[in-house]
Structure formats: C-alpha cells, structure tokens
Design a protein around this nucleic acid. Structure first.
Lengths: 261, 261
DNA sequence: GCAAAGTTCA
DNA sequence: TGAACTTTGC
C-alpha cells in the first residue's frame, strides 16, 4: 500500500497545474523511492517527467510498485478543494481501484477526503537517454517565463543561442523581430538573480514558444530553472522541487528542424 | 537618423497605453525638437496630441524630419517586454523600414532588442487652433479619474460646469443621477491635492464619459491634469510629461450638442 | 491593502 | 469576445 504525506498541498497542486494542459491521463508510479511520472504530451512533441523523492514527503511508505492511472482533469478538480497550506495525504491499496486524497487544514479543524477512480493506462515506456548537454543555463524561473511570454507576442518559435558570453533568445514575426540577451553573471547580493552558464560548445536551436510558455506554468514551483541544450537533441527545461531532495519537474521539447537558419 | 534615449521606459509605455485604445496606427514625427504625435480617434470625435521635447530624453539626436508610422498594437506588444526601469532607446534610419527599440535593464545584464516594421500613414494635417479658454481647472489626475469612473457607472455623459466657486460634474442615468462638486482650494501642506480654477466666464458643457474614462488612462503619467473649456469648443484634457520639459499628452473632445439641458 | 494585469470561464 | 476571479506588483 501507498501512504504519502506532503506538508504543503500547494506543491502537488502546482505540479498538477503545470502538466495538466500537456497530458490528460497519466500514471503516477509509486515505489519505495518516491512517486514518478512520465508522459508524452498529446501531440508527442513534448515529454513531462516528474520525480518526487521520499525526502520531499513528511512521511512516505510504499511497499510495492503501484501505478496510479489518474485523469489529471479529475485530479485538478479535487485539488482545487485543497488549501495551499493544507497537509495532503495520498493513499492507495496494492491493487487499487481508487486513490484516496485527504486534506487537513493546518488548524486541523477541517478534514476533507476524496476518492478518485483510477484508470488503466498503457505504460508506453519512454526511454530518455542520459545526455551530456553541450550547454546548461541556470536562470531565474520568472525571467525565463517573462522572456517566453514577451516573445510569444511576436512569433510562434524562438531560437535559443548559448555562447560563453551569455544566452540569447531571438524570434521573428509579422510585426517585426525581437531578441533578449542575458549575460552570464553571479549576483552575489541577490543570488536568486544570478545567471549561470556551463558550456562545452556553443548551441543554437529553435523551439515552439507555445510549449515553452506552457512549461513556464511551473515557475511558481522554483526560483530557478535550468535549460539544457545539445544540437539535435530535445531541450530539457528543469525545475527543482523541494530543495535538496533531488525531486524535479522536467519538460523535454524537440527542436524545430530546418528553422534554425 | 534618429537616436533617442529615455531613462524610464515606463514613460513611453504609459503614453502608448493611454492612446492605443483611441488610435490604431499613427505617425511619430521626429525632428530636432523632439517627438510629436497627433491623431484623431477612429470615430473622429477625439484628438490626441503628444509632444516629447528633447529635454525629456537622456540623449536625443535627430538630423532630419522622420515620420515613423507605427501600429500601436504592435508597439504595445513590444513595450510589454520592457521593465519599467529599463533604459529605452529608439533608433531609426533616415528613410526607415523599421524602428529599432532597445531595452536595457538597470543591471545591464539584460538587453532586449526589437524591430517593428513601419507603415505609411497619410498625414491628415490637423489644424488645432490656439484657443483662449474661458475656464481652466487644474486638479489631481487621480481625482479626475475617480470622478469619471464613478459617474460612468450611471450615465454615458457628464456635464462639466465651471464657476468661480468650483467645478461640478453632473450626470443623469436610468438608475438615478450623480454629481461631484469640487471647490477651488490651495492646499498649502499638500500642493498635489490643490484644485485651481482660472476663469474669465462660467462654462457648462457635456461630454461623453466613455472618452473621458479613456483619457484618464494617462493618469499615471502625471500628478495633475488640466481641463480647459470654452463654450462650443472641444474640451482640452492635458497631462504634463517629464516636469519642466514642456512635454505633454493632450486629448481634445468635442462637446455633446443639445444635451446640455 | 489596493489597483492593475493575467487567466479562465461563459 | 467579454466578464469575473485570481494573482501579482506598488
């Protein structure tokens, strides 16, 4: 059986919010290392990968591997009933029909309990190869969100170019063109604002802004986002979850081919 | 060529925000005295006139007269990408196809650059006659905005009556009637709150509230607004820009005839 | 704590 | 497309 307890329901709410527009139904794979999720988006262009390790939970117990096939729309409806500071518990039997979700308000005066019916979802196994990325950019999540939103006003796609000086986001559309250039910098006074670039070779790739804007819904989950790029390989957009637990929410997005100019 | 630099992108953002709902496309006329704009609104009831003198810029250079025909919708999209405290630069060639807009964040770690395509706009020349107004009211811009917003809940139009005692805004609608009366006063402790009236003869005119509410989007640009009125002549609503540079944003609105009761 | 902006729903 | 609600910045 599974019994997992999160002290902040908001973490789970935000994770589900960030992926529900990409994926309708998916398996939450539970085992003794935590809860994992991997799913392609409906058009098979993007891939979501989430991992909540046991340390991210206030308490965690899972004796056997359990796959909870959940409709994210239903889950969203239920999670809407949770206060952000509620304690959230997930419970399931070993061969479950339902997942049981309990919210306890911090004052403990209110306990809400929901059961969501599970579904069988074919586990299309997704081999994500380990990649040594040519370039890795760490930047404030809010800034990345801002850039994607700004540029999406001009174009459908954005070119991301990483060089040792910095990272440049460029796009061209009907009304004109735009570019945002960030210089790598270590802001000592305000480390949240730092922009870090690790690079073995320069990379320039083009991606759909619609998807990037979508990924950025996860910005509330983390101060920082990591962009990892290599030529001809999907971009990896990574948000760390629950600092120091190795938990993460990752999005992969295939580059647009032939548009890179 | 044109090369103009504003230390506060927010000034330009707010100016464009305040006029974009009145005018879709218009010429920014650049010459060695600064940047000027004049345009009728789409229904030819209101007129916008903006003048940014060279002193309003951190640096300004414009060798020849250049008319930049810009779609304000496109410009808004681009300006949305500017931080309020960014340094904004406008650049254009002598016979330009595009205007180049650069935002530099105060930390200088971020440089965004946009090109907006220009369009040819027929310069319908707008002769605005110099008028000696019968009455001139100077009041806090926020207060004028509040009054217009409040009264627009009741009616489509407002009567503005200026007498030597003060100014009175009156309207009548289906659910009832409303009026706001302001007495002229010089608030010595808080001069921003002063209401000043200069008058050669009493005036009472009626105007569309929809337009006035629209004009009030400029309230963020200035603490004060000046209302200038004369019988049978358009109302002039004036916001000074960049204190002490003679720059301004003006709106003219023709009175409603026969509605004055 | 309020106003403006964005997002979602009708 | 507009309106209401939520969210964010001042």
């Amino acid at each position: 059986m599974l019994e997992a307890r999160l002290t902040q329901a908001s973490l789970f709410k935000k994770v589900v919010d960030a992926i529900k527009d990409l994926v309708q139904d998916c398996n939450f794979d539970c085992n003794d290392s935590g809860i994992n999720l991997q799913a392609m988006d409906n058009s098979h262009v993007a891939l979501v990968s989430m991992s909540l390790k046991t340390d991210a939970f206030a308490s965690f117990r899972c004796d056997r591997n359990i796959a909870l096939g959940i409709n994210l729309g239903s889950l969203t409806k239920v999670l809407r009933a949770a206060g952000n500071d509620d304690v959230l518990s997930l419970k399931a039997e070993d061969a479950p029909d339902v997942v049981n979700i309990v919210f306890e308000s911090s004052s403990q005066d209110r306990i809400s309990e929901y059961d969501i019916k599970l579904m069988d979802i074919d586990q299309e196994h997704l081999g994500i190869p380990e990649t040594d990325y040519a370039a890795m950019v760490t930047m404030p999540a809010a800034e990345f969100q801002r850039i994607c939103r700004d540029l999406s006003a001009l174009s459908e796609s954005v070119a991301i170019e990483v060089s040792k000086e910095g990272v440049k986001f460029t796009c061209t559309g009907d009304i004109g063109s735009g570019s945002v250039q960030l210089r790598s910098n270590t802001n000592v006074e305000n480390p949240k604002e730092s922009i870090e670039i690790e690079m073995t070779e320069p990379v320039a790739l083009t991606f759909s802004l619609k998807y990037l804007v979508n990924f950025c819904k996860a910005s509330g989950l983390s101060d920082k986002v990591k962009l990892k790029l290599s030529a001809e390989v999907p971009l990896l957009v990574e948000y760390p979850l629950s600092e120091g637990t190795n938990s993460f929410l990752q999005f992969y997005l295939a580059p647009k081919i032939g548009d890179e100019e």
